[in-house]
């Protein structure tokens, strides 16, 4: 982190030392406001951990290894097991959600990272200023369009297109061997992991492309020109000088995009098929992610009078929060260590 010169302390003393003068009150008020995000983060973690505690106790360590989602018999009297009151038969497992979250985010990054880097390279190195400003406008639109609108488009247009015209090209011809088997099978109606991944790719693309573009603009020109003077082609100079110069920054931008993809809710909830209890059979199968499950299951969870269902949703929210925070902090540390550019704060216009 680069901090500016400490201007406050160098000021001559205020004209009055009375505490109610604006000169002395304003910095204090500003200081309080500055602590708000830190306090909120701590409160957030504390609230989630407190609410999730019964579920953590009940679901145990096997929570992330099971494929089951059953609120139990809500019409029977509540029983107590493992110290937690719960409806008889309640059983939860988050394996499908974890697989769905990681799988769709992985598809998103596999698609968005090369496209983002390629776009940034061509914008910085080749395009005339007017055109690259136009691409910047495209990035702003893509970052600014509400996720529910992207979800609507994906549900009506992208999903059917992917399943009927893209996935169907290879789905029947992929060999039936262990890993590739996941690409086989009926391509469905467009609600599933592939569509969710592509939608997420579209949504994290502006983050990766814009950050990489800003990083590339900071590469010292002389070094690249030196490489060209030594006889390298543009592509070789890019590969040997430009990309290594900003590599950590690109990794940071990608991890920031990953954090965004892991936490995206509404667009995924609209195209994922919303299946919580079982693993998808193929890349095209219905599934759900942690974030989408919270939004789609919270209503129903309140029918569980013992509170275990809500607590379980809080537990997966806590897991999601911890993972995204780790990604965010990691990305920022990585970038601060090597680049003068800091990462932007997520999504906006």
């Amino acid at each position: 982190m680069v901090t500016g010169p400490h201007r406050g302390g160098e000021r001559p003393a205020a004209r009055t030392d009375r505490w109610w003068r604006a000169e002395r009150l304003v910095p204090k008020a500003l200081r309080v406001a500055t602590h708000v995000p830190l306090v909120l983060l701590v409160l957030l973690l504390a609230a989630l951990a407190f609410r999730a505690w019964p579920a953590i106790r009940y679901n145990g360590f096997g929570f992330f290894g099971r494929s089951v989602w059953n609120l139990g018999n809500l019409y029977a009297p509540v029983v107590t097991g493992r110290g937690v009151p719960h409806p008889p038969g309640a059983a939860y497992g988050a394996l499908p959600l974890v697989v769905g979250t990681i799988g769709s985010s992985a598809i998103a990054l596999i698609l968005a990272v090369p496209v983002g880097i390629g776009t940034a390279l061509v914008v910085v190195e080749k395009l005339p200023p007017r055109l690259s400003a136009g691409i910047g406008f495209c990035l702003e639109i893509l970052a600014g369009v509400p996720s529910v609108v992207i979800g609507l488009w994906a549900f009506l247009t992208l999903g059917p297109f992917l399943s009927h015209h893209v996935a169907s090209v290879w789905a029947d011809h992929v060999p039936d061997v262990p890993v590739l088997r996941f690409l086989r099978g009926p391509t469905g109606n467009g609600e599933g992991m592939l569509t969710a991944g592509v939608v997420l790719a579209v949504m994290v693309l502006p983050i990766i492309a814009a950050t990489t573009r800003d990083l590339l603009r900071q590469v010292p020109r002389g070094t690249v020109e030196g490489a060209v003077a030594l006889g390298m082609t543009d592509a070789e100079a890019t590969g040997a000088v430009t990309i290594p110069w900003v590599r950590a920054g690109i990794i940071g931008a990608s991890v920031l995009g990953l954090g965004r993809a892991l936490g995206e809710t509404i667009a995924v909830a609209m195209v994922c098929g919303d299946v919580v209890g079982s693993l998808p059979h193929s890349l095209y199968g219905s599934m759900s992610t942690i974030a989408a499950t919270i939004v789609s299951q919270l209503d129903g969870a309140f029918t569980d009078a013992s509170g275990l269902a809500v607590s379980t949703l809080t537990e997966i929210a806590l897991v999601l929060l911890v993972i995204t925070l780790m990604a965010n902090v990691g990305a920022r540390l990585l970038v601060r260590r090597v680049a003068t550019t800091a990462l932007p704060v997520g999504r906006g216009i």
């Binding site: 901090t3 201007r7 406050g8 910095p27 200081r31 500055t34 957030l44 974030a291 999601l320 920022r332």
Partner: peptide
Amino acid sequence: EYCPPGRGILRGASEVLSGVPSIV
């Protein structure tokens, strides 16, 4: 304007807060 150097945690907390998923 006022933050003494070395208070990276305040700025860091604000940036990290922006990474919290909205559904959480």
